[in-house]
């Protein structure tokens, strides 16, 4: 099981499609930096197939005014949660 990191907003890039195609059925996705714009509807819809394994970094949401705005099925994690995700998965792949 892998953890994928995505730091780009879904708008204006095909990257989310590439990441989704690269992900195995149990892999997890963590949205960080500008990637957290993808945690807000309607942009979050592109990650809907990942329900239960799609995370967004809390600090990065807050800094961008999105603390209360993310889709309810996206799981916010703090930095400790980020570290735990990297520890629980075998490897981390960063997409940018």
């Amino acid at each position: 099981m892998l953890l994928h990191l995505l730091n780009r907003s879904p708008a204006g890039s095909r990257l989310p499609e590439d990441v989704l195609r690269a992900m195995g059925p149990d892999d997890r996705l963590l949205l960080i930096e500008s990637g957290v714009y993808g945690a807000v509807s309607p942009q979050a819809d592109c990650f809907k197939t990942l329900k239960g394994r799609c995370y967004a970094l809390q600090d990065d949401l807050s800094a961008r005014g999105l603390a209360e705005r993310h889709a309810d099925w996206i799981i916010p994690v703090d930095m400790a949660g980020f570290v735990a995700l990297t520890a629980e998965t075998q490897r981390t792949v960063s997409w940018y």
Partner: peptide
């Protein structure tokens, strides 16, 4: 193919992107 892609990535280590 899209079906094969996750396994190509999951079976390798380390992975540099």
């Amino acid at each position: 193919t899209a079906e094969q892609l996750p396994a190509v990535i999951a079976s390798a280590a380390p992975v540099f992107n």
